[in-house]
Amino acid sequence: MNVKAPAAAGPRFTLLSRLLHWSMAAMVIAQLFIGVTMVASLSYYPLLLAIHRPLGIAILAFAVVRLLNRIMHRPPPFLATMSPIERRIATWSEYLLYALFLAQPLIGWAMLSAAQRPVVLYGPIHLPGIAPQNISVFAVLRLCHTIFAYLLFLTFTAHMCAVLFHTFVLRDRMIDRMALWPAKAQRPHHDRDSTTATVAPDRDSPAPSASPSP
């Protein structure tokens, strides 16, 4: 069996989906690093907190837009390089990411409300409280905010590793589906290359378990 890799990875995500994906990726990764730096920093804590709050609300707004976009647009079908179980794990980790994108900003917002801290967006622009003032509620929400941040980081890392594995090890051009740059034309394959890029629809792929979806 010596099947050539497909010339391209097939249909792409829509341009809107791709723009949302990459802007969200930049915001979420920045937010995760701001979060861990913030709680460990003395002098930069107020500055990072002042970025963390409006960025979290922006992520919440983008998450709502993405959810609507996801409901209205069916994503392109899975690549043949993905086994049935990998597809199931990809689907569920996509749902998990969406859930965390929505839950994490809301928990942060509710947490500040429970501590009766002003939810300052910028200058005098404040958000209303969404939870009763209660220090015990704050304690629970604050713990959830940390746990969910680590869960989000793990899910994102698994997602990234899976896509990189498909793109650079299986060479199935998975990242082209979400790329903002134009897909490169397929270079002619030598036998050695085509062997590494060999793909069969029913192949039991050893790929890691994470989502290649947005």
Binding site: V39, S41, L42, S43, Y44, Y45, P46, L47
Partner: peptide
């Protein structure tokens, strides 16, 4: 002020 804000939050 920044140091107190960070430590008091913790």
């Amino acid at each position: 002020l920044s140091a107190r804000s960070a430590v008091y939050a913790r």
